[in-house]
Design a protein around this nucleic acid. Structure first.
Lengths: 89, 89, 89, 89
DNA sequence: CGGCGCTACGTCCGTC
DNA sequence: GACGGACGTAGCGCCG
């Protein structure tokens, strides 16, 4: 067996199972944190809604701003590509 | 206009715009945190993969365990319901 | 049983099974067509590559043009939202 | 310059630009067709749903039919291995 | 409960 | 030829 691969053989005495359990618990912990953040986001929207803002519009603004950022990054990436293409001639 | 509603009239002097900006920034900040967490999760999976584990299977186990927890919570909720119906023993 | 629902009872004599098979085959036929189109796209990129074009750049241009279109649609949707929000006051 | 390479030199008088535009339009045309096919697929599922079929199950059947049987068995065997290593969830 | 947006998965491409 | 990264699609969950 190659080094570094998951090992279930008897000689490892359940070590792999412990390692596996560790990975699972780390992921589950992080997903718990993620759920908390997502809940916080929901609460912000709820608060805004409570003050009369239209959450649908808010969400669309958020999305649009994100797309603008992505677009800008794409433009820069494209420029970089062109520059490297020119440099490669 | 009803109290508590988003107010863009001239008498509020841009106060609503500031409030709106605040909400947007809070959401964007939280989404940034969420993205960080999601990245962390990806890294854990990558680390596990590097040790020979099949991430597809790992994700499947995570899903199964989450479903088990949900089932258990439902069971407990049902038990609570019965107990309260009995007068709380 | 409500009319129009999937019916497996003995009185239908396997009619539902035939209907089900029909849906599956229609989907599979369409997915086959889709696979053909996707293959055509790959061939266009391959042809361009054969003439010295950088497919990575081509793909990025395609993506950017698509994002521009999407952004424009988003902008219009946002404008519509604002207009309807104003009309709802 | 090697024959067959993208040529932007003055002697080609914008021919390469035309060629480039041609590639882009061919790809965009094909992607449009692909989008149409995908829409057709969605419509078939919608029609099936309207007759009481569970689209989630339909999609699963499609996937299973597509999936290689050997792969499925291997996946299950590996999952069982991990589960037994954990002592059963 | 129906649509829609987001996440997550599978696939494909480029790289080493 | 395998690995990792990126893209597009499909599945899922939230919102209305």
């Amino acid at each position: 067996m190659a080094d570094g691969s998951a090992n279930m053989s008897s000689s490892t005495g359940g070590v792999a199972a412990e390692r596996l359990r560790s990975f699972l618990e780390r992921v589950e912990r992080l997903e718990e944190e993620k759920a908390t953040i997502m809940n916080d986001i929901k609460e912000v929207y709820a608060e805004a809604k409570g003050e009369g803002y239209d959450t649908k519009i808010l969400r669309q603004i958020i999305r649009l701003r994100k797309m603008d950022r992505a677009d800008r990054q794409e433009q820069e990436a494209l420029l970089d590509l062109y520059l490297s293409a020119l440099g490669g001639l």
